[in-house]
Nucleic acid binder design. Structure first.
Lengths: 217, 217
DNA sequence: TTAATTTTTTAGATAAGACTAAAAATATTT
DNA sequence: AAATATTTTTAGTCTTATCTAAAAAATTAA
């Protein structure tokens, strides 16, 4: 059995691995979890003992199959609870994160599988992220960053890279939501800001914003 | 803010107070929480510092208004989650306890109030226990133990005193559930066992069983 | 009202998970 | 390649919540 803290480390390492694919450094874990490198060293030793990751001093860590399994299990729970909060309890997509961070640690296989069925076996969470199934499997969704779309091209918003409340509230303000059609009108070469057509209105967004919106085109 | 452990102590003390109404002894808390008296002493000192209970050495403890408020808040959460599990996720009444013990510590006022609304503001949980409302208020339900009913009298099962899985499975076996009409046929003077009519069948139950079934008559 | 028993508290220890500060190893510059 | 900077680890401390063993207080019995 894994503690809340151990689960959070595994989840963090898992997410870091989806970005870099190499051995995950102590420092990057510390940054992600807002803790200190020395605390990370302590914990990864413990996790190595538990066979969920491979650790060699100064070399960073890699999750084992068991580690990946536990991490995706926690992510499955997190995302299913997010769907529950939005679909059933009137939460908006910028309000779900903190509560899901708590709920993801509830231990009960029956609970999570029944919840999955109750929600109709959703494939993605309210931010467009895929939900692993019972066996930890989930298909990659074809997606590109809005910032990579060329002017005059069309796409549909299918996810966000940054799920912070601040960013999501910004999107709400401009009525940018999942499933929303977006057409790129023009790109400003100086700062790479984009003028886009959405809801029949033209708005201009910075590159930073465009870098955090996933599009299917 | 209160830790999981602190919340469990408050809940335990609250439940003990509903039985005895006097100062709650260190030992009784230890027994209820399956911990040691010395651990209880440590914790109640901390809780006294936090103004949720009044403690004088060797005198037992009493919850303050704040302490009662926090305890009923946790109980509200526990019971609402139990309703959710049974009504929405196909749990049976003997499966909900352990999961609700975890869920009751999730911190989010919006979550619990939306859940309450989603469930249709239930007044009782799957074991017949009353659910405190937003303000911690709940009405006492008029109830008697089945063991106090005289032969030839009729009643409806409205709750159980013991919510353990073992006891509830026993009740399932004899198809005794909430809302079930029960008629007492006779009482055996030797061991106070009862013969009752339920589902048009006569069955005999021990006094111990009858002492854990609440009846409205 | 002493004596024996039980309950409660204190003192000291342990484990988990975090921290700071310093040492050791690795990376990066020049 | 040596010097500098960065990263990682170690060592030691802290807090929370537990425990055991012993001391102190309260209760019960003789």
């Amino acid at each position: 059995m894994f503690t809340l803290s151990e689960e959070n480390y595994l989840k963090a390492i898992y997410h870091l691995q989806t970005i870099s694919r190499k051995g995950i450094s102590t420092n990057s874990i510390a940054k992600k979890l807002k803790t200190k490198a020395s605390s990370v060293t302590d914990m990864i030793k413990k996790l190595a003992d538990k066979k969920v990751l491979v650790y060699k001093k100064y070399q960073g860590v890699t999750l084992t199959d068991l580690g990946n399994q536990i991490a995706t299990g926690v992510i499955r729970k997190h995302r299913l609870w997010e769907v529950f909060l939005v679909d059933k309890l009137n939460f908006s997509w910028d309000e779900v994160h903190d509560v899901a961070e708590q709920l993801e640690h509830i231990k009960s296989p029956k609970l999570i599988n029944e919840l999955d069925a109750f929600l109709g076996f959703p494939k993605t969470d309210p931010h467009g992220d895929p939900i692993p199934d019972k066996d930890g499997e989930f298909q990659k969704i074809e997606k590109r960053l809005l910032s990579t779309i060329e002017p005059s091209q069309l796409g549909v918003c299918i996810g966000v890279k940054d799920s912070s409340s601040e960013f999501l509230k910004y999107l709400d303000k401009y009525q940018i939501s999942l499933g929303q059609q977006i057409k790129v009108i023009s790109k400003e070469p100086f700062d790479d800001s984009l003028t886009i057509l959405i809801h029949d209105k033209e708005i201009t967004i910075s590159q930073k914003i465009a870098n955090n919106i996933y599009i299917q085109s």
